[in-house]
Write a protein that binds this DNA or RNA. Structure first.
Length: 486
RNA sequence: GGCCCCAUCGUCUAACGGUUAGGACGGAAGGUUCUCAAUCUUUUAAUCGGGGUUCGAUUCCCCGUGGGGCUACCA
């Protein structure tokens, strides 16, 4: 007898997909999969100012990339088409008429200035700003006259008195006191319906059973509940997810840096890794933190979703990314990383074709320190370019290493087969002769070869660099006037 | 200002009203590679404050404090 679960993700295509929305989509998807229900994608493209078809396509592309397939929606269709709000206007009109017939709607001719003034007055008096219902008192004759005068109007919903108690799946009971809600707008002066009206109509018509969305919608819910009742629909179950916050505890926004999936895709995070991290922001699986989408779906449970807001932590995301990267085959990883090297003009595709095995080894050497594909460039820079950059302090340090560098040069030059073992052997010998060991020995050598203070083992790096290149990089520091070295 | 929501290590979080308050990220230390990184091991650190209820509160209730969200003819 239990109805099949139907959930929806209903973004507005006004730009890139925000992290918080991705998590909302993910939780909806997980819940649908777990309950063997339907996941609906509905595009709320009624904001004429900001919605574009391009954004809409991009939205679906990115959802596809993430692997969050929808059972009903644009591109795939479904029993409740269309799934673009902009194509559903007759439906809203139809249900608006139903509301009118019940006398729950009235026109309002108040100007923006009047409303602003009223709002300010109310706030000054310490009240919640709400529409006072001035135009509700208009007589039919007055309305007729105002219309005849060509006055523009909006349609408002006559909010009935009474407190509203709702049951939230993650928050429990939430009560909204009586007399806090003003008569809100259903259609604008251009006759277009507002959000609170369209969601209700759409969700009801699409038979959505659970509305899982961001906490920022919590205060819209009483309005929507009222509309469900006015239209004679059964309200769905509600679940309001906490907001994802930036490092300063405020709602995550552009000024916190990267907030869109697109930017993480561009950085080369694996979708599964990305979703895995996001899933953990507000939900804790029973065993282990690394889970595939299927594993998450198997375990997912709304009652175990946290109520408090979570701060997005790029450091842990990086760690999560690395967990997925090490699972990739070296061949796949190398191929995945190549576009980033090409973009950075470090290694062309032609070069890669000719030296794929070599490239694989390079990637293999740095893979453990990568969280996403684009990390490859900063980790492998010195393999492709000998234009190493040295800080003034580093240059200064290297200038004092002339004798050591000469010794290395001589020793390496004598190696016939330039492999890791022989390289290590030579380094040790130089150390013994020069009476230098440990950090004093390796640090200058590392700096000379890679221009960096950290990185993979030199034993692995040197053979990949090749004898000639190693000698060349040492040579720089053996000349007298090293001031010219950049 | 008003309404609503939230509150456990720095961060993400776990804990039928009974645990030495657990795990993960990060940090620190150590082993290993004669160096950093990686890796392995160990370790660090928390129940916002005050009242109740109870034999017993992280857990339930109230107040305070703090944080967040919403306050549109955006969604």
């Amino acid at each position: 007898m239990s109805e099949t679960v139907r959930v929806r993700f209903a973004p507005s295509p006004t730009g890139d997909l925000h992290l918080g929305n991705v998590r909302t989509a993910l939780y909806n998807w997980l819940f649908a999969r777990h309950m063997k229900g339907a996941f609906i994608l509905r595009v709320e493209d009624t904001d004429k100012e900001r919605s574009t078809p391009e954004h809409c396509e991009n939205l679906m592309d990115i959802m596809t990339w993430l692997g969050l397939k929808w059972d009903e929606g644009p591109r795939v269709g479904g029993p409740h088409e269309p799934y673009l709000q902009s194509q559903r206007t007759e439906l809203y009109e139809y249900h608006l008429v139903r509301l009118k017939e019940r006398g729950l709607v009235y026109p309002c001719y108040c100007t923006e200035e009047e409303l602003d003034l009223e709002r300010k007055r109310q706030m000054g008096r310490g009240h919640m700003p709400k529409y006072g219902g001035k135009c509700k008192k208009l007589t039919p004759d007055e309305v007729k006259k105002l219309d005849a005068d060509g006055k523009t109007s909006v349609l408002r919903f006559a909010v009935p008195p009474g407190e509203i108690v709702m049951q939230d799946e993650v928050r429990g009971e939430v009560t909204f006191p009586d007399d806090q809600l003003g008569d809100f707008v259903l259609t604008r002066s251009d006759k277009s319906p507002t959000y609170n009206f369209t969601v209700v109509v759409d969700d009801a018509l699409m038979k959505v059973t659970h509305v899982i969305r961001g906490e920022d919608h919590l205060s819209n819910t009483p309005k929507q509940i009222l509309l469900y009742e006015a239209l004679g629909f059964t309200p769905p179950k509600w679940a309001h997810l906490s907001i994802i916050k930036g490092p300063d505890g405020q709602k995550l926004s552009k000024r916190h840096g990267e907030t869109s999936v697109e930017s993480y895709k561009a950085k080369g995070y694996l979708p599964d890794a990305f979703l895995n991290y996001l899933a953990l922001l507000g939900w804790a699986p029973k065993s282990g933190e690394i889970l595939s989408l299927d594993q998450m779906a198997a375990e997912f449970d709304l009652t175990h979703v946290g109520k408090s807001g979570a701060i997005f932590d790029p450091v842990k995301l990086h760690w999560m990314g690395s967990q997925y990267l090490v699972k990739m085959s070296l061949d796949d990883l190398t191929r995945a990383v190549l576009p980033y090297l090409a973009d950075a003009q470090l290694f062309t595709r032609e070069q890669a074709r000719a030296r794929f095995d070599w490239l694989k080894q390079v990637v293999d050497v740095v893979r453990t320190s990568m969280g996403c594909f684009s990390d490859v460039t900063k980790e492998t820079f010195f393999f492709f370019s000998d234009e190493l950059h040295f800080e003034p302090a580093q240059s200064e340090e290297m200038k004092g290493q002339k004798t050591l560098m000469e010794a290395f040069h001589k020793a390496f030059n004598g190696i016939s087969e330039f492999n890791g073992d022989n390289f290590l052997q030579a380094v040790k010998e130089v150390g013994k002769i020069a009476g230098v060991k440990g950090k004093a020995l390796y640090h200058p050598l590392r700096l000379a070869l890679t221009g960096r203070e950290d990185g993979p083992e030199l034993v692995r790096i040197a053979p990949l660099l090749g004898k000639a290149e190693v000698l060349k990089r040492l040579m720089i520091w053996t000349v007298d006037d090293v001031k010219t070295i950049k």
